[in-house]
Design a protein around this nucleic acid. Structure first.
Lengths: 154, 154
DNA sequence: GTTTGATTGTTACAAATGTTACTAATTAAG
DNA sequence: CTTAATTAGTAACATTTGTAACAATCAAAC
């Protein structure tokens, strides 16, 4: 009869997720005034080019209302534009503006630096172990269609 | 110039943390109507016996207002009682009631089953890799005083 | 002792999030 | 064509969370 909270895996993940996000968010928050949902949508748009809100939602595991608000905020900042799809006028094709693209190209290396530093601090052995463990968990607990491929494309 | 969101470590952690928490919460939510902050405070009290709110806060990495509300909810359910410390009347010594203790003893094995199943599904090699990676990250990104020992005790 | 500063915990207000309901557009069934 | 069902995205409401101010108590400085 003994459960040690700090050894309980979901708790460990939540705590680390918070710490790592806080660490990463410093850059996009202080330099670009971005929130986490905005950063996620923004990063996906930079990575994949034009997307719909629903695609952003399924790729980022964020609820569609969250995506809707993030997109609105990014639009206010003139970092993206929407264009109604003429074949299906329910859809909005969302694309980064030139200004948004520029911000993306400015931000990405900084975020990569954070990531690289993390890996460097862990060391080769630990980071390889971490990646192995993460990959195994993702295999078990995440819907792969959601995370790494489009539903329609599958 | 390429950042792949689904390979970005903070994002991976957030996604997995959510999935794992959702998975674990089914039990304490459906059977005991507990929220995540309540579960954390509850688990700590069961684990450590009498604590103050501030101690729960520092051990669980939850903000003190969150702890305050969780404690209030657990108190309403008659799972804990508070007693003002006579040596320092700002402090409240919080302890599980007999009823709370009983719930704890009922709940813990179920939560452990979830944990054990996770580890079993991962397999020996993957779970060992995961633990190694997590430990290394915790070493780097978490204040050890917060997580595993009381501040005053150190 | 009195004042100043720090600490414990709660409360009040603001921001973020989730849930549900909704409009507009499309598709499928008849 | 018309109706019913589905989908994309937004809006309105409720819940949760975070931030700041607060009262009560204690400790330290003087």
């Amino acid at each position: 009869m003994n459960l040690v909270l700090e050894e309980f895996i979901p708790y460990r993940f939540n705590r680390l997720a918070e710490a790592l996000s806080r660490n990463a968010s410093v850059t996009y928050k202080s330099e670009y005034g971005m929130t986490r949902p905005e950063w996620r949508a923004f990063a996906l748009l930079g990575q994949k080019g034009t997307m719909t809100a629903t695609e952003i939602s399924s790729y980022s595991t964020m609820h569609k209302t969250k995506v809707s608000r993030a997109i609105f905020a990014l639009e206010q900042k003139r970092w993206l534009v929407r264009e109604v799809d003429e074949n299906d006028r329910r859809l909005e094709r969302i694309t980064l503006t030139a200004q948004g693209q520029k911000a993306y190209e400015n931000l990405v290396p900084k975020m990569q630096r954070i990531e690289n530093e993390l890996i460097a601090r862990l060391g080769k052995e630990n980071s390889e172990a971490l990646f192995k463990g993460l990959a195994a968990l993702e295999e078990l607990y995440l819907d792969k269609e959601t995370a790494s491929r489009s539903r329609k494309a599958g």
